[in-house]
Design a protein around this nucleic acid. Structure first.
Lengths: 149, 149
DNA sequence: AATAAATACTTGCATATTGCAAATAAACTT
DNA sequence: AAGTTTATTTGCAATATGCAAGTATTTATT
């Protein structure tokens, strides 16, 4: 049986490079970290700082500063939560939403590009497999869900 | 049809976290970058600096310094190439080889852990799918193979 | 109600990582 | 022999990191 790790190493490296090079929106380059933060804010329902930082596995102090810069770039808004004044709720500004959507499109375009090299059956198989993999990883406690090991 | 990007985002995040937390070998923590460099040196045949840096998509100047620190840690050896004195060939020291092997084992253990949540058929399907995916990505020129777009 | 403990977030600091520009040194081109 | 390309290193300035310590607020304990 072939080396499992090698396959996954190659795959994750490719996606890592994709992330690294993606994306430039409206002439401005968005770093990986920033794009992941935008994605996560967009996908959670009124998340707090802590929630997003946890989801991304980023140290909260680093995260705090990343958010500060996104706020300066006018992509993210920090709103104090009335019920608990310690908490800030994150949301995307109109511009941030636009950037997030554009990145999403670019990623989907790339993925469709990749799938265009497969037939319909293979494509369905791969998509189903990624789902299976995600579910299995979610069940694997000793790494990579929150909280970490 | 569900959102393709979301599935892949989740998957790559999980593998990213895995990478980030993996691995500690003999009491010393190995960073992602270092573990990827060790992996790549181990898998290529007497690679030069440039070759490894290219494979990893790392800027050569950053890479040069990373290798310097790996040499200091006594994990990597840099040997001048007699035929072309501009070139340095990279190899793992005995200790580096041990570290690389240990990381490999840890990763394989984790992967087997993940696959233990699937039946044999699902497992085979997923493995075949990752292969398909890697092949398709290799054919997709506009990103994430070398040279980059 | 007063004090202690926990939680959410920010700042100080010291260290590490990044990549561009420029330098060196060796190999090819003409 | 002079000019160009290639492989690698260093200078530097910008950015990212995470621990320790700080502020502010909420929850728990007495």
């Amino acid at each position: 049986m072939e080396n499992l790790r090698e396959m996954f190493q190659i795959m994750t490296r490719r996606f890592g490079l994709l992330d690294k090079n993606c994306c430039s929106v409206g002439g401005r380059d968005i770093s990986i970290i920033h794009s992941h933060i935008l994605y996560e804010i967009d996908n959670q329902h009124n998340p707090s700082m802590q929630q997003v930082a946890d989801a991304l596995g980023t140290d909260i102090t680093t995260f705090s500063r990343q958010v500060q810069s996104l706020v300066k770039m006018n992509l993210v808004k920090k709103s104090p939560l009335p019920e608990d004044k310690r908490v800030y709720i994150l949301s995307l500004t109109t511009e941030g939403k636009l950037v997030a959507t554009t990145i999403d499109q670019q990623m989907n375009t790339y993925l469709n590009d990749v799938f265009s090299h497969m037939n319909e059956f293979e494509k369905e198989t791969v998509i189903r497999s990624i789902k299976l993999l995600n579910e299995a990883m979610a069940k694997t406690s000793n790494c990579c869900t929150i909280p970490m090991r």
